[in-house]
Computed example of a mutant assay.
Amino acid sequence: MEKLHFNIQINAEPEKVWSVLWDDFSFRQWTSAFTEGSFYQGVLVENGIIKFLDSQNNGMFSEIVKLISNQEITFLHLGEIYNGVEVPQDWGEATEKYILTEHENTTRLDVEIQTSEEFKAFFEEKFPNALANVKHLSENQL
């Protein structure tokens, strides 16, 4: 597994950044950096299952292993979804963690991903753009 780190400083409070990250409308906007038409299905609750999908119902499914609203969320990726069908994968500790830290009316957003070598280049290319989208939405959206 490769461990990747990304971060960005955002001129907004953590509650606003959290809202941009996980509200349906803004989630679709910032994740377009990865795949146009991205969305998720499910409820953000600890131990809940979330499906991250594209417009063709392809994507992955994950368990929320840690959730502290407005501060941290960690997903354990369990498998892929092809045409709406879940296909479990043995990825081990393939996790994706978002941590929000407040400092004097700004928020530092840290993202830590444990991924296979196969996806490393994709994330290194796409995540900086995705975080720039989160920053823009957090600082400019009402």
Rank of each mutant, 00 (worst) to 15 (best):
N70S: 09
F52T: 07
S38I: 00
S62G: 14
L44A: 00
V43N: 02
G48M: 07
Q41P: 00
G42T: 10
M60R: 14
V43R: 01
Q56P: 04
Q41G: 01
V43I: 09
N70Y: 09
V45Y: 07
N57L: 12
K66R: 14
G42I: 06
S38R: 09
L67H: 09
I68P: 02
V45M: 09
K66F: 13
G48Y: 03
I64D: 09
Q56E: 09
S62F: 06
F39W: 05
M60D: 14
V45D: 05
L53T: 11
I50Y: 03
I50K: 04
M60P: 01
V43L: 09
E46I: 02
K66M: 15
S38W: 06
L67V: 09
N70F: 01
N58R: 10
N47D: 05
K51L: 02
Q56I: 08
E46V: 00
Q56T: 05
F52N: 10
N58F: 08
L67E: 08
F39M: 04
F39V: 05
I68H: 14
S55L: 11
V65A: 01
S69Y: 13
K66S: 15
E63A: 00
N47R: 02
D54L: 06
K66Y: 15
N58S: 13
I64H: 06
G42K: 04
Q56G: 06
E46C: 02
G48F: 00
I49L: 10
I68G: 08
